[in-house]
Simulated assay, not measured.
Amino acid sequence: MADEIRISAEIRTEFGKGASRRVRRAERVPAVMYEKGNEPVHLTLPGHALAMALRHENALITLDIDGKDQLVLPWQVQRDIITGFVEHVDFYMVKKGEKVVVDIPVYTTGEAGPETFVTIEAQTISVEAEATHIPESVEVPIDGMEPGTQVLAQELKLPAGVTYQGEPEDLIVNITQEASAEQVEAELEAAEEEAGIEREPSDDEAQDENSEEE
């Protein structure tokens, strides 16, 4: 389940690019907290604490705002494209017992059978869960699975109270036969031919052509 993290937040009263730059120079991050039916609340949060919290998938955060606690979940996170630093966060308010829909990552565990290729068709899945009981991920055991095996959404082992928000027949993991070197080479040549790419012959191929001419 997602960890509950506490961060002290301050109400933000200055706006605009200049104000945002001053907030970031103070190693804080501007943020907005949304609640359905109410006006958004503008905040600033300590940058390091927030960055650490956002390392967790669907981090459940308790914001201490002027001595009052408010549970929130990250909604949208803006990062600097070069440094990766958090520049702005949108949160939405949640309550204990309230159900929310979030995306969680899918991972496989174990090793499939020999000469297989494993494809995770759904890197994330959408689930509904209580805000305080969001699973960090879902694991799909694939130990010994043979080519042709498929894992569908209806086969996922989700915690109690967590429901998948899709079709039962959705393909999650696909186990196929590993392609041979010859198959890979043939597919590459076909793709190059279709794209009109003329490949230079290798030394061995050139030598074979010269031998045939002689």
Rank of each mutant, 00 (worst) to 15 (best):
Q76E: 15
D3G: 08
L60I: 06
T116I: 02
N174A: 13
M145H: 09
E111V: 09
R55L: 06
E111T: 08
Q70W: 01
P159T: 13
D208Y: 01
E205G: 06
A153N: 08
E187T: 12
A191K: 04
I125S: 04
Y107D: 13
A19E: 07
D103S: 11
A53L: 05
I82G: 02
T108N: 12
R25M: 13
F85S: 15
T149N: 06
A59S: 01
E98K: 13
A131Q: 10
E198C: 00
E167W: 03
E35Y: 06
P30R: 13
S202I: 01
D203R: 11
L50Q: 03
D3C: 03
A129W: 08
T109H: 01
V173T: 02
W75I: 01
R199E: 07
V138L: 13
V127C: 07
H56W: 03
L50T: 04
P46W: 05
E193A: 14
S137P: 02
G67W: 05
E130H: 10
L188V: 05
S180D: 06
K17Q: 14
T176K: 00
I120G: 03
F15W: 05
K96P: 00
P74G: 15
T163N: 13
Q70D: 00
E14H: 13
E213W: 00
V77R: 04
P114C: 09
V100S: 09
L54T: 05
E187N: 10
T83Q: 09
I7M: 10
A179Q: 15
E189C: 01
E136R: 14
D170I: 10
N210P: 02
Q183I: 03
P74T: 14
E146Y: 08
V106F: 09
T149F: 04
N38T: 07
T108A: 14
R22T: 07
M93Y: 09
V100E: 09
E213A: 10
I175N: 03
M1Y: 03
V89P: 03
V41A: 00
E4I: 15
D66Q: 13
V77P: 02
K99W: 05
L60R: 06
A31S: 06
I5Y: 07
E14C: 05
P46G: 06
G161L: 11
D80A: 09
V118A: 02
K99F: 13
M33L: 15
G97H: 15
A191V: 00
G148N: 04
T62Q: 10
